[in-house]
Nucleic acid binder design. Structure first.
Length: 559
RNA sequence: GCCCCCGUAGCUCAGUGGAUAGAGCAUCGGACUUCUAAUCCGCAGGUCGCAGGUUCGAAUCCUGCCGGGGGCGCCA
């Protein structure tokens, strides 16, 4: 019996109690899903619910009295061995060993589908993340969002949502001009401009632009007048830089459905259209020669310029048009992941959303993630694009590999700033928890191979009543909670929850492995005990594989 | 000055109002002639930053303060 099935059984008990008057509350007062949790202490049974305490006030009954009434009915449910009322009104439920163990078969039969749900079915979600400027290689901060964003996308999809991964390609404006001037200067053998970019990659790309032009039989860009030369370096340089970022992300197992060019919003007239819409809605005014959006009407702390007094659209104008474009493409939920250094945008972005008549927090969600700090020898490392002292995605992946990098970045809450010690990472020691989880998976695969070699076959028998050891109860519980953890991670936009849960599953598996043996000794006969344990072994393997898949981390068969 | 995030075991961090606050790492002591010891078992380790409040119940929610980090342009 899965916790979800137990939850349904509880709800049926509640419904019947309402119908015959035992529980004097209206039917719509019942929670849609009854929360069933694994109690902290083993003495409190297999599962517990606080539903009696939640309903006590509405029913006008003492929580314990209500719990007693429910306990009697719940005890009648097939598979439920014992129900106790404890503390202020908890219902502590103990399952028959066989009913609890049945989960192993459920998981194996569900296979890759175990952990998937329809919790977010019908939602069309646009998830924008990374969106780094193509003025340099993807740095460590962007890599965090690549890992977290892609994992979140996988979990949203597993929960039934229709998800588009989107990268906003900022190829318009002053930063790109600075990038182009830096390339040009380097090609001429000059120092980088005061406000430009430095680093070896600038030299590499400048050389590549020259080589490409020569190979194509085009005139040497350096022979052009400065304007033309800068444009040649801009066009080709951005293309090269972006291709490099895209390739690095692909190698990181992150592929976007849409790479959206900011420039296209300006060329297509989408910016003007968005401003016109806001003007019609009466949220635009002019002052000091500029055009403003009255975001203070919607909670922002100051109004925002959308067209500067020199006639150029401000940066936010692109955001207005981009948001509108996403909505018009049919996404009812626009989710944007930003670094903590952009948290100041939330107010204006939410105000913009409201100005268009949408609901902030529903149609537009902004997820803020804290920064990644780099540490070497215990000293914080200052990074500067201009000086070229940046740690790129390739540096990180080269040091620890994709699996460890993705896992390390995805296992912490995005609210938490994280320190990555470069020495530790470059030593590639075994301190990374990804190995703990992957090793557990490799072990399940090894056990299954050995069992197969010795003639243990699942299809020959399944007797869940033999799964009576405490390590089996614990492992079954961890496996049983997996679907709820995935759905919760998707709904809360907190993919790290899945990683943490996998660590618990792995821990429970390792303990079980030490206590119970799947394969027969020597000339021992194969019994249902071996077969049933193989079901549990394989169920664990499935959960670890599904979970690692949600994190974009491989599940090795051998290590 | 205003805004955001953080403060939990020696370290790194889990814990979206529930029971005796957990894990990994580090330290110390144990367990491999039979499924992988990248594992497991045990010991030890805590004023959940401080002070109030909300309620049957607060690490969790609210207010104030302290400490650390980040941000507040007609830049992008």
């Amino acid at each position: 019996m899965t916790p979800a099935e137990l939850s349904e059984a509880l709800r049926a008990v509640l419904t019947s109690a309402v119908e015959d008057g035992t529980l004097p509350v209206p039917a719509d007062a019942l929670p849609a899903t009854v929360t069933v949790e694994r109690p902290r202490s083993r003495e409190h049974g297999d599962w517990a619910t606080n539903v009696a305490m939640q309903l006590a006030k509405k029913a006008g009954m003492p929580p314990r009295a209500l719990a007693e009434a429910l306990a009697a009915r719940l005890g009648e449910v097939p598979g439920v061995a014992k129900v106790d009322v404890a503390g202020p009104g908890f219902l502590n439920i103990t399952l028959d060993t066989a009913a609890a163990g049945g989960l192993a078969r459920t998981v194996v039969e569900a296979g890759e589908r175990y952990g998937r749900s329809e919790a977010l079915a019908g939602q069309r979600i646009n998830l924008e993340f990374v969106s780094a400027n193509p003025t340099g290689p993807l740095h460590i901060g962007g890599v965090r969002w690549a890992a977290v964003g892609d994992s979140l996308a996988r979990m949203l999809e597993a929960s039934g949502a229709d998800v588009a991964r989107e990268y906003y390609f900022n190829d318009h404006g002053a930063q790109i001009d600075r990038f182009a001037r830096s390339l040009l200067a380097r090609a001429k053998g000059e120092d980088a401009p005061e406000d430009g970019y430095g680093g070896q990659y600038i030299a590499d790309i400048a050389a590549q632009v020259l080589a490409d032009a020569a190979a194509a039989g085009e005139p040497d860009p350096l022979s052009l007048p400065d304007d033309g030369a800068q444009e040649a370096f801009r066009a080709r340089g951005v293309e090269l830089m972006f291709a490099e970022i895209k390739q690095a992300l692909h190698d990181f197992r992150v592929d976007f459905d849409v790479y959206f060019h900011e420039d296209s919003l300006h060329r297509s007239g989408a910016v003007e259209k968005a401003i016109a819409r806001l003007r019609e809605l009466g949220h635009v005014f002019e002052a000091d020669g500029a055009i403003w959006l009255r975001t203070t009407d919607f909670g922002d702390d100051r109004d925002r310029v959308i067209v500067r007094s020199d006639g150029m659209p401000a940066y936010i104008a692109g955001d207005l048009a981009y948001y509108l474009d996403k909505r018009e493409r049919g996404f009812d939920r626009v989710v944007i992941m930003l670094g903590a250094d952009h948290h100041g945008y939330i107010g204006r972005m939410m105000a913009m959303c409201a100005a268009f008549g949408d609901t902030p927090g529903v149609n537009l969600e902004i997820l803020i993630g804290q920064l990644v700090n780099l540490v070497r020898d215990g000293e914080p490392l200052r990074m500067s694009k201009r000086a070229g002292t940046i740690v790129t995605i390739d540096d990180l992946v080269g040091a620890v590999g994709v699996d460890a990098a993705r896992y390390a970045l995805a296992r912490s809450s995005a609210d938490q700033s994280i320190d990555l010690d470069l020495d530790l990472l470059s030593r590639s020691t075994n301190e990374n928890p990804v190995f703990y989880v992957q090793y557990a998976h490799a072990r399940t695969a090894n056990v299954a191979r050995n069992a197969g070699d010795l003639g243990v076959r699942r299809e020959d028998g399944f007797d869940p009543s033999v799964l009576d050891h405490v390590s089996e109860s614990t492992l079954l519980a961890k496996i049983g909670e997996f679907p709820r953890v995935v759905a919760q991670a998707a709904e809360l936009r907190e993919p790290h929850r899945v990683a943490r849960h996998l660590e618990e599953v792995a821990g429970a598996y390792h303990k079980w492995y030490d206590q119970r043996r799947v394969t027969p000794f020597g000339d021992e006969d194969v019994t249902d005990t071996h077969r049933t344990r193989l079901w549990l072994n394989d169920a664990t393997r499935q959960v670890l594989a599904n979970g690692l898949g949600l994190l974009g981390v491989t599940a090795p068969e051998r290590m």
